[in-house]
Each structure stands twice: as C-alpha cells, then as structure tokens.
Design a protein around this nucleic acid. Sequence first.
DNA 1: TTCGTTGCAAAAGGTTTGCATACCA
DNA 2: TGGTATGCAAACCTTTTGCAACGAA
Lengths: 155, 155
Amino acid sequence: MGRTATGEHPSPWRSTRQRAAVLQALLDSGEFVSARQLHAELTSAGSLVGLTTVYRTLRMLEQEGHLDVVREQSGERLYRPRPSDGHRHYLVCRECGLSLTVDAEAVENWAEAMTRKTGFSDIEHVVELTGICDRCRRPGPEAIPEPRPREAGCD
Amino acid sequence: MGRTATGEHPSPWRSTRQRAAVLQALLDSGEFVSARQLHAELTSAGSLVGLTTVYRTLRMLEQEGHLDVVREQSGERLYRPRPSDGHRHYLVCRECGLSLTVDAEAVENWAEAMTRKTGFSDIEHVVELTGICDRCRRPGPEAIPEPRPREAGCD
DNA sequence: TTCGTTGCAAAAGGTTTGCATACCA
DNA sequence: TGGTATGCAAACCTTTTGCAACGAA
C-alpha cells in the first residue's frame, strides 16, 4: 500500500494533548492493544480522549508505518509501536497478550520466493502466531483466574 | 480452540434445501468467497436462502473444520471448502480473488520450531498471502475496468 | 486568524441473536 | 408430533464519517 515517496509528512502533525496521550499509552503498554483498550486506559488514567481520536491517531500512525497490526479472531485490530524499520512478526500469548518478536526470516524468504514462482506481484504477507506462553501455562488448571481481557501481561 | 474429541457431530445435521444450496454454492465457486457474496449468488440463482442461514451454515462448517478462512483487509471473512485434512495456505489475488494453494511447508516447519524455542505451547499460525495475479496485471493501467468486487475471477 | 484537530452522534459494514414460523425426521 | 432450522428484524461490535466547536501555530 502506498508508501510516501519522499518520506515527508504531507502535512505536519500538530502536537496535541490527545495525540501525546495516545502515543504514550501505546508505548507504555508494550504489548498489542486494541483501540478500545487504549481508550479505556486513557480514560481511567484521567486523560480524557475521545474514542474517535484514538482511532484516528492509530490510523495515522499505521499509515505512516509506525505500527504493527495484528488481527484477533474476532476481527478486532491490535496495535503495537513498531520498534524499527521494516515489519516484524510476533508470537502473541492468547491468555495474556504477551508478545515476542520472532525471527521471521524464513517466512520473508518464502514469501519472496512466491513472487517469482507464482506470477503474482506485489505480494504482501500476514503472519500471525498465537500460543500460550510459559507463564500462563504454569499454574494448574484450577489456578488460572480467568481468560483475562489481555490486560497487563504475564508478569 | 476446541477440537472435537471424538470427531462426532454433537447433533446430526438435518439436511435442508438451504444447507445443500449453501454448500453447493461454496463448492461451485472454487475461490474464496464472503458470506454476502454467497448469499447474492444464491439469490440471483433463484435459490432463496436467508443471509442469516448462510452465516450459520458457514459457522458450522468452520467449526467442524471443513473450511479455510482468510480475512480481507476490511475484516470481512472469506471462506473456502477445505480440500483435504489439515490446513492449507493460499495466495489470494487482491483484484479478482483468484486463489492458489501454495506450498507452505517452510512456514509449517518454522511455526513448529517456534514451539520448541520460545516456551510457548499450542501455537497456532495464520499466514495470509495476497498479491496481484498475472492476468490482473496484464492490461494497461487505463484498461483496468474497476476494482471489481471480487466476482468471478481473472478470466 | 487560520486551519488542522477534537468529540459527539450517527452511519457504515459485517456478524450474531431473539423469536415466531416452517419443516425434516 | 417434536425439536431443529429458517428468516426477519433488531442488536452488536468495531471502525469511519459529518459537522460544529476548539485550539495549536
């Protein structure tokens, strides 16, 4: 999807309290979070930001390539700030949302090879890995509290 | 996500005109189709089936493991009958919906290796490849009619 | 002052559910 | 006949958009 030719912002961001708050919450979370979650955290932290603004900010960041996005089974989108250039692949815990960056070189190579072998062009790939992390598995079945709403993380 | 322990249906399907029609339309299409598309095809073919029934039938088939499901950018789900046991990976044309089954052994192996290396268990993977197929690319930019609603295929 | 940004409310788009009716077994 | 399946309408959920008021530069 369109990449900015020059890398310059078409129009400079205007720094506002709301955008700073959304970005900060995103960075604080450290894990994949949904727009709704982000909005809830901001609200409970006393930083009143409209849900619309959360969505708009996330969309802008996504379009600028600053976020990685994965999709839940439900179709809900989860966002995470992109650590560096180029996209990454994650292994996300279904219980607590803990995410690991995984080496996806094999997949990258494979996807690239597909371009040549299939006659398709502009191939994009989405790879989503989910599992149960070590810490979520440790407690016995009766000790597991609940399928937490992916809040804080396993720690 | 629960796998049926015995493989038996909890309650036997009742064969109805509607279910037969949905299944037939699904098999006829051969490509990934959305519920809405399926419903439209059934309707225009004179086989009156409620959209609700289409969704319910697809959900049942999915839960039984008879379908592969990919997700569009929009979040819309596309269904395709699963050719055989075990899941497959597809390369889907963003223009026309043409899909190719691709060799995903590399990804399978990679996903499996992750299980051992990360401490995660029950790893599930979603791999979605999209691109522009050879035929959709051929016509010059001015010859491309429209971003067709993924109807019949490239032909 | 200017024009991008915000936020409410409402729309949009896809999917699910409640409930009375129709129909398979 | 009994209980499942159907289908309409409405609910749901997430995301987007219209528009008037707000606020950063």
